[in-house]
Design a protein around this nucleic acid. Structure first.
Lengths: 204, 204, 204, 204
DNA sequence: AATGAATGAGACTTCATTCAT
DNA sequence: CATGAATGAAGTCTCATTCAT
């Protein structure tokens, strides 16, 4: 509404991609940036620059920084792309999910993102609620897989699915902490071994 | 809080009579504020107000925010004050330490502080080194306690102290995550039970 | 909303069949929104959403915000719809008009709109001119009604119509201010009583 | 905390005036700017530039824009500097206050400020509360002056002080509206005459 | 005729840091 | 030793406006 903006005309000529595509592209960027700089270290300008957009566009699509971060979290938790190939066996599915808790590199993108999100969620109710929901959903899902595995006799009958899921998830998270603190290949290998051994102990 | 600036060390290393007291008081305040608002959520004005000093004074004593935060992190880790009373029994000592991983309230000061420290350490080499040292020292200490407990026959001989310490520590950290995500009394009770059961399983 | 840009007039003056309806609908919306949020508190997105159109469409029809606001201000002043039924008696007509200065609710749409218009007009020549014209027309009209009422002997002969109209209008506006500052039912009732009493004092 | 700010050193060398002096200086500036551009037309940058300070300093002293505006309102309502000379006579005091409602120029600073504040207050509870308080205090004060004037027999006994104060204040505000809409010297003279006549009518 | 994604300037505000006192 | 007013960069977010579709 100021005089200056009235006389200056837009100079942009870049073609626009589809809307959903833009959102997805931005979320990828955010996910990367958070794992690199943390949540409060993430600035909207940074996101805009990295995504090749303007800050206005980012806010146009996501409303505000918090929603952007939450959207990034949501999109980060998705079933692995190779999920279908495990569909036949609940125990294989469980193993696939649990091995997701093994870092893939000393600076694993996802788990660095996660630890930052977790820290932020201790002082933000909305983030916290999302985190809680995810956690509980994960636990229930693992419990169901264990139950199913028991049914098809992949796991032994004596297991308490809920209880085992809880312990397994806790161990997995504890090992994530360990891998973040000790970012060495051998620690990651150890984590994988420990988790594998735990799942194996579910078999007869 | 970027990595580059963290290498700047505090300017003054020559404590004077009245100074040390002021410094300690400020650090206590900072610890509290970090566990409440996170590291980047900590402002110098906040610190000054909470400590009943002026921003100028804070900077006079610590040079800058970086040094202040580092100093606070350093001073945050101390052995529990009731440590002596457990000195006779290694297993009692271990139990005492492990139960330190049970949150004392839905917003436990120490563990909220810890998660913020951990997140920050993923993008700061100096913090990361501190964290790693702490972690390894803790693990070695627990392993030694287990070894001692085996020696005095509180724990069974078949244990691999190093291996058990590692798993126990991972479980403990995983349960801390669980308690932070699910800040309910029952979850804390469960964590305590699980850790207790694990230690009990070390006995014959 | 700076004076300089206000001189820009709407680009399109050639209404087409379906267009006029859209324009009218939008202007109604704008009037509502201004009385609620003020002129600078009005955003194009808000207008678009409230009117069920897109921002592009609003700008397509009105060129820019300035023109939109001006158009809304223009269309806001209309004679009351029940005007005809008072046509017989000048004093009844006057009473009808004067009672229009009594707010109908604590957040009367029209008078909230008016105060925003008035404030804006103090720093915009075009609005100011409109406002002045309206004011003078109103005063002349009231004076004429008083004169007519004197003629048909509803009011006493000794009145100076011009002078009385001026004072009555001033009192009415002063009471509007009062009602805006003190948005209570009793203040509105008092205003009505005061205005009624003043008109009654015109009778023999 | 970023690297850039750490290396760039302050370049300022301007001496600092006393704190209360700074506040007062800023408020004068704000008052001027609001009467010129309205409340939403007032930007913190503008204030800072006009006052020869930085935006940070403005916020340091006033916290935020709203508090700044309110502070400006409060400081705008102060007893006239020549108040003492009227102290002997309540009616002279009243006359002095009432004539404050006559604009001193076609673009009277105070009343332009006031109308903007009034408009803004219709959509902001805090502004509104301040406005209401001021209004009621003013009315009570005028009523008291009238009552005192009756006591010392400057005004006739038959007056209802509360009622007359209310009407006088409304008339005064109505005339302010008139003067803002019709910014002519003769209208201001007329307003003065009308208000004077009304006060004169209080005498025996 | 209509859309809505994209823009970029500019708004308010916060904050680590400095320095005259 | 201690203060706190002042700074100015950077943060988030809003918004009128444009233009390819």
């Amino acid at each position: 509404m100021s005089e200056t903006t009235l006389t200056i005309s837009a100079r942009r000529a870049r073609p626009r991609p589809g809307q959903e595509c833009t959102r997805h592209h931005v979320l990828e960027t955010v996910y990367d940036l958070i794992s690199e700089h943390g949540i409060e270290g993430l600035s909207m300008r940074q996101v805009a620059d990295a995504a090749g957009l303007s800050t206005g566009t980012i806010n146009y699509h996501f409303g505000n920084k918090q929603s952007l971060v939450i959207a990034a979290l949501e999109s980060a938790y998705e079933l692995p792309s190779d999920w279908e190939q495990y569909c036949g066996s609940p125990s294989a599915q469980l193993r696939r999910l649990v091995f997701g808790y093994v870092c893939r590199s000393p600076r694993d993108r996802f788990w660095r993102f996660w630890i930052n999100y977790l820290a932020a969620s201790t002082r933000n109710d909305e983030l916290s609620a999302h985190q809680r929901t995810r956690y509980e959903r994960q636990e229930r899902f693992w419990a169901r897989l264990i139950r199913d595995a028991v049914k098809v006799e992949e796991f032994k009958k004596s297991l308490d699915p809920q209880h085992e899921a809880e312990q397994l998830l806790s161990l997995a998270h504890g090992l994530v902490v360990r891998q973040l603190v000790l970012p060495y290949a051998e620690v990651r290998a150890e984590a994988r071994a420990l988790l594998g051994a735990r799942i194996d102990s579910f078999r007869e």
